[in-house]
């Protein structure tokens, strides 16, 4: 299959996948660099959303409906993980303030 044979949708999907890859790379630089834990959590949240978009774009390309289920589960796990880490941050802080006082 050469480049000429691609349909419009396939072109667009490949471009979108490339853009999403760039975005995931950029978000991972923030995960590595992020000065504090909440920065990293927010960046990982965005990475999860980007992976959902990636699965969606790939579902358009392959016309397999299973990828949508994976995207749904990924979004659920991202939400649960974010809330859990937020609780963790809050609890660590309140423990520290208790030991300080």
């Amino acid at each position: 299959m050469t480049l000429i044979d691609l349909t419009l949708i396939e072109w667009v999907v490949y471009i979108t996948l490339a853009v999403l890859s760039l975005a995931i790379g950029a978000a991972f630089t923030r995960v590595l660099r992020g000065p504090s834990l909440p920065d990293r959590v927010v960046a990982l949240d965005l990475v999860a959303y980007l992976a959902m978009g990636f699965l969606g774009a790939y579902a358009v390309l392959s016309e397999q409906e299973t990828y949508i289920d994976a995207a749904l589960v990924l979004g659920l796990l991202a939400f649960l993980g974010t809330v859990a880490v937020a609780r963790y941050i809050e609890r660590v802080e309140s423990n520290e303030s208790q030991t300080e006082s």
Binding site: S36, D45, E90, V92, E93
Partner: peptide, 24 residues
């Protein structure tokens, strides 16, 4: 689901980070 949970997750993490003093 995304539209419902994304603001909640963002709010929760911002709130706990603010009260934990992690925000500069």
């Amino acid at each position: 689901f995304l539209l419902l949970t994304a603001p909640i997750a963002s709010h929760v993490i911002a709130r706990s980070a603010y009260y934990a003093g992690d925000i500069k």
